[in-house]
Design a protein around this nucleic acid. Structure first.
Lengths: 135, 135
DNA sequence: GCTGGCGTTGACGTGTGCGGCAAGGTCTAC
DNA sequence: GTAGACCTTGCCGCACACGTCAACGCCAGC
């Protein structure tokens, strides 16, 4: 399989594949003409990379999974190093979520304060409507 | 006030201030010798920028707040444009938090599945201990 | 033999918010 | 007059995962 076909079957681009090879993440054999040659195993590796990327893993974080598969293990996460990455990522996610929730609370507080200030200003500038109009 | 003093009083760097000026976010008057000259109002603007940055606002998102203050309003968020930025940011935060929580669930699922697979493999390879040893 | 569609390498661009450095000007204190 | 602390502009670098050329090679079909 050549680079174009692999890219298409994995839903990515040739540029990305060349980049992964440059990182040593997904090296390719070469055909006689210099073209990169891939097999079904490479497709498996690539799908693993893509899945982890969708989870927000950096490319370096996918390396243990890829190497685990290449070592012949049934799954990319069959190795301790991969489990360690999972654990680190979960901690990272928890911290990030907590930080965002804290920021959200603060921004919401600012927003509500600003809206109240605006309404009070409007109420003081525009004298209240005639009482009768409230009915 | 010159750039070094302003930077120190706002807890930032001269480099950042020059960058803000380059963006047109915090322009400076110039003294006769070409040095940038700032006043207390600029310090106020700068503090506003820094606070919003701490919330994760991009510099461009702080612009409405800064312009609101420069227009003479009492607070950076006294203007509708600033409130709009708050609203957009809250929506962004909500979406981001939801996405991260979803990812966290998926990663946790993968992790638990991988751990179970590992344990089952270990159990099948290492025959269970002698029943007597359990006591 | 020529066009078109693949492939190759290499290099620069993207966005974001600065850090760091160089080469020089300015001001103050001794 | 000179050392030191400040200021100026300008430019390169960084992280990340590629996109986007450019200039060229290889191969199949007509």
């Amino acid at each position: 399989m050549r680079i174009g076909e692999l890219a298409e079957r994995a839903g990515t681009t040739t540029r990305a594949l060349r980049y992964y090879e440059q990182l040593g993440l997904l090296p390719a054999r070469r055909a006689g003409n210099g073209y990169r040659a891939y097999d079904e195993g490479d497709l498996r590796l690539l799908r693993e990379i893509r899945m982890l990327q969708d989870f927000g893993f950096g490319l370096e974080e996918t390396r243990p999974f890829v190497e685990c598969l290449r070592a012949g293990h049934p799954e990319g996460d069959s190795c301790p190093a991969s489990l360690e990455v999972y654990r680190r990522k979960l901690a990272e996610l928890d911290e990030c979520i907590a930080r965002l929730q804290d920021v959200r609370r603060q921004v919401a507080g600012q927003f509500e304060r600003a809206v109240r200030a605006r309404d009070e200003l409007a109420a003081s500038e525009q004298p209240p409507m005639c009482e009768l109009a409230k009915e």
